[in-house]
Design a protein around this nucleic acid. Structure first.
Length: 479
RNA sequence: GGGGCCGUGGUCUAGCUUGGUAGGAUGCCGGCCUUGGGAGCCGGAGGUCCCGGGUUCAAAUCCCGGCGGCCCCA
């Protein structure tokens, strides 16, 4: 493909993987040419977009009483190896620092794979009394995991660049339970704002971190029919209390174990947003998140070059205080600019030519529906406001439609089999481990999780044993 | 985890079978002419042919190893 097609993509429906890689590069989100597998360069446009996404998250974190912190990015082997996950094969995915300059190191240092061990090592000194609890902290940092499977830009990486990890500490198990509910609430709000559809599931006991009490995952479905994990919230109970000495003294002077939770999301959230809303022309961004919300494109014609440009500047100035606007007065032809800004997902384009100048009107173009409309200059402010609302509403509608098309509820193993692969499939499950394993064996994929008690009182029967099924389980291909 | 494909200026590629001057398009820079959905013309710059080793008088081309990328299946 030549650069003539700099703003052309492999059709999304034809080859989603290729489309996704191309759109990341051509919309200037990532430069994928860095010579370390699974690590990519974030370009200014992509970084700004990701910042806008993370700002949504940070606002929610602040609203719910979480404080941002920073803990170091390396951890000594001795500290890390106390973590139970380390023993469970976690070790294979760690990047180790084994030399310092020319010298072999005495104790290996790991590049942060996640921060429980790093934080708990210090927190056992922060927390001594019930008055120190609850404690809610988070950080947004890169984490390193040596993925052995094939890496994919933004979806399966060895350096997760924007890992928002929350860690909380509570006096009682009940408080930790409530906290996890809050964490799920935060993630729901977050993905609603991103216009990304999701299901909240509890992971099956055989798929939960060993030792953790339980674990909720948010999952979505990608255009290729594969489920993508978008975030998780884990209740560790007092599992870590013993290994890291996390204890506090209660009102009666009794020593008690601290209960902990963790919850995390990453740039996969942006990957889902891009994958679900993008089309064959490129990104399609919600107005609230777009780094550039409006682009003004002057269309000069002979004898009117300066007047048109002046008018375009007037439009720009009228909007610049309230919106993220860009005036594209580069020396390219209009068609080129149209393709370029459509690739980058700019929600609204304002075209200003001789006609608009003479009539004192503006041509508004909306990216989501690829439609134009003509408005008087004086109506601009109110029209943009309502247009943003309409765009978001339309994108929300498309989100629902998208999700309904790719999911289905089955009532028998046969129905699951017919739909799985193309869709992710929900089905009634009694909750017994034997029945779960049998479905997995019959279908050939793992259970993604289940919506607890979602089918209570509905009279649906477990697809395996036929007993009453309270839970709606989900199964399908996954990333 | 299993199988397959691939790596040549920024980008896309020809050349590889049959070893012998790296060619094109696009993009980039300068100029002219233009501008309502990827304009055109003239001039110019830009290359460790992924890396390392081997075979050979001679390697982009053949062989081995590594690194990187993609696809399909689990």
């Amino acid at each position: 493909m030549s650069e003539r097609e700099a703003f052309e993509l492999t059709p999304k429906g034809e080859n989603f993987s290729r489309w996704f890689d191309e759109v990341l590069f051509k919309a200037e989100i990532l430069d994928e040419r860095y010579p370390v597998k699974g690590m990519y360069v974030w370009l200014p446009f992509g970084y700004e977009l990701m910042e806008n996404v993370m700002n949504v998250m940070e606002r929610l974190m602040r609203q719910t009483g979480h404080k941002r912190v920073y803990f170091p990015g390396v951890v000594p082997e001795g500290v890390l190896s106390r973590e139970f996950r380390f023993i469970k094969g976690f070790e294979d995915s760690i990047y180790w620092i084994t030399r310092l300059g020319k010298q072999e190191i005495r104790e290996k240092l790991a590049l942060r794979p996640t921060s429980e061990a790093i934080m708990y090592e210090v927190l056992n000194r922060w927390i001594t009394s019930y008055k120190d609890l609850p404690l809610r902290i988070y950080q947004i940092v890169p984490v390193y995991r040596y993925e052995t499977k094939a890496t994919r830009p933004m979806l399966r990486v060895r350096e997760i660049v924007f890992f928002k990890e929350g860690h909380t500490f509570h006096a009682t198990y009940e408080d930790a339970v409530k906290q996890v509910e809050l964490e799920v609430w935060i993630y729901k709000k977050f993905y609603e704002e991103l216009l990304v559809p999701y299901v909240v599931v509890k992971t099956t006991p055989w798929d939960t971190f060993p030792g953790a009490k339980y674990n909720y995952d948010l999952i979505t479905i990608m255009p290729d029919g594969k489920a993508l994990e978008l975030g998780s919230a884990i209740n560790f109970g007092d599992l870590f209390a013993r290994t890291y000495g996390l204890e506090y003294m209660d009102e009666n002077g009794q020593k008690r174990n601290v209960n902990t939770t963790s919850f995390g999301i990453s740039e996969r959230s942006l990957a889902a947003l891009i994958a679900i809303h993008g089309d064959d022309r490129g990104l399609k961004l919600p107005p609230k998140l777009a780094p550039i919300q409006i682009v003004v494109v002057p269309i000069p014609s002979k004898g009117y070059e300066e007047k048109v440009l002046e008018y375009a500047k007037e439009v720009y100035n009228a909007l610049a205080g309230d919106y993220r606007v860009e005036l594209d007065d580069t020396d390219e032809r209009p068609g080129y600019k149209f393709f370029k800004w459509e690739m980058k997902g700019v929600p609204v384009r304002i075209e200003v030519g001789r006609k608009e100048y003479e009539e004192r009107t503006l041509t508004l173009f909306r990216r989501d529906k690829m439609e134009r409309s003509l408005v008087p200059f004086d109506d601009l402010g109110s029209r943009i406001e309502s247009l943003f609302g309409e765009i978001e509403e339309e994108m929300r509608r498309q989100t629902r439609e998208y999700f309904e098309k790719r999911t289905v509820h089955a009532e028998t193993v046969e129905e699951i089999r017919e739909n799985v692969g193309e869709k992710i499939v929900s089905f009634p499950w009694c909750g017994l481990e034997e029945c779960g394993h049998e479905v997995e064996e019959e279908i050939g994929y793992g259970i993604l999780g289940y919506e607890e008690n979602a089918l209570e009182g509905r009279g649906e029967k477990c697809v395996i044993c036929g007993r009453e099924a309270k839970h709606r389980a989900w199964i399908g291909r996954s990333y």
